[in-house]
């Protein structure tokens, strides 16, 4: 009898664990069904032909979507600019700054081995990563929110990124801020080299998560 109860408990715990990861992922990638998303058509052929680095940026909280083209590299970070000057700045796979997608994120600082920046393979990530988010407030200093994230490797799967099939590994980060707010990030890493193909990251308490799909990566040596 004891074994039965114990087994049932383990089963419930395990199934709960698996379900919560899936629920987290679904909640992040489809946050509010009442907000209609406008997702632009991506002409992958044209992007490839022009040899452009491009991303699809989605702001689910306000229903905005735009295709951004890499226009600048500053301090190793790539700035992608879209119609109406909506912008996202990527530091590796980390969303470093946003413009025109809701409530601007000014900057993010992180530890030197942040796997989003180094684009480390799933399973090799440090158990904990701490990042500080900089947001506009009154005065000349930005408000700072520091979050500590723990990650969990999920399933391996193929995803479609703007018409291209990518073999990826899912990683979910569970984070808590110094203001006791919690949030989740979901990343889809290339199964081979850890490069980010799709990521949904928290970018502030108002803007929430922004999703970036890497249509064509920036390759300076290419």
């Amino acid at each position: 009898m004891i074994k039965v109860v114990f087994s049932a408990g383990v089963l419930i715990a395990l199934s709960g664990c698996g379900a919560s990861l899936g629920q987290m992922r679904d909640a992040i990638l489809n946050p509010n069904p009442e907000v209609a998303m406008t997702i632009p058509q991506v002409n992958r052929a044209a992007i490839e032909q022009a040899d452009l680095a491009a991303v699809l940026m989605l702001s689910p909280s306000v229903g905005l979507g735009a295709v951004g083209i890499a226009i600048q590299m500053r301090d190793g970070r790539i700035i992608y600019n879209a119609n109406e000057n909506r912008m996202v700045t990527l530091d590796g796979g980390l969303i470093y700054a946003t413009r025109g997608l809701g409530t601007n994120l000014q900057a993010v600082t992180t530890q030197s081995d942040d796997p989003l920046v180094t684009e480390a393979k799933a399973g090799t990530w440090p158990s904990q990563v701490t990042r500080t988010y900089f947001l506009t407030q009154r005065g000349t200093s930005f408000a700072q929110v520091t979050a500590t994230c723990q990650n969990q490797v999920g399933r391996s799967l193929d995803i479609d990124v703007a018409g291209a099939k990518r073999a990826v590994v899912e990683v979910v980060e569970s984070c808590e801020t110094d203001t006791a707010e919690s949030f989740h990030n979901v990343h889809y890493l290339d199964a081979g080299n850890g490069r980010i193909w799709r990521t949904s990251q928290w970018t502030g308490p108002v803007q929430g998560n922004i999703q970036v799909d890497v249509i064509e990566p920036f390759e300076p040596d290419a």
Partner: peptide, 19 residues
Amino acid sequence: PTRPFVQTDIGRGPHPYVE
């Protein structure tokens, strides 16, 4: 007043800065 009812930066973004 510091927490608007709407997202504040939903309109056109700024032009990129060029050093």
